[in-house]
């Protein structure tokens, strides 16, 4: 169950870009006089299934400056596994969720291949 190394490279490159973008965003915010931070804690139900996918998702969220995983709720009954994410710029809940969904889509494309990854992201998680 080792993902394709080429896809791992694509995902790692994209993640490095996101880390630079997040670090610059925070840097620009803190060296200019007006502080625009307004933290939020959002619940993110996941489409991921295996432990590897869930823990990679939690680590990727944490390594991106501006978001950190506070807790992982495992699958219970019919509610999907859920991450609780502390976002530094959380004025707009929907845009935070949208960024995280984009990261999850790329992660699933890495672990499952393009077709089944895109397919798993359709619809709400269950």
């Amino acid at each position: 169950m080792i993902p394709n190394p080429l896809r791992v490279g694509v995902y790692a490159g994209w993640l490095a870009g996101e880390v630079i973008r997040g670090a610059l965003r925070i840097g620009v915010d803190v060296i200019t006089p007006n502080l625009r931070m307004s933290p939020a804690i959002v619940a993110l139900p996941l489409h991921c299934e295996t432990d590897l996918e869930i823990s990679t998702m939690a680590s990727s969220i944490t390594i991106t400056p501006g978001t950190i995983t506070l807790g992982i709720a495992p699958r219970t009954g019919d509610s999907p596994p859920t991450l609780y994410v502390h976002a530094l710029y959380g004025e707009d809940r929907d845009s935070v969720i949208e960024d995280l969904r984009d990261m999850e889509r790329r992660l699933l494309v890495m672990t499952r291949g393009r077709r089944s990854g895109e397919q798993a992201m359709e619809g709400e998680p269950s």
């Binding site: 670090a23 840097g27 506070l70 530094l88």
Partner: peptide
Amino acid sequence: SAIAMLRSRDGLSRINVLSS
């Protein structure tokens, strides 16, 4: 990251900005 730590307002935000 240190400046962000100095200016942010609570402990969770300080842990958050450490990742840069």
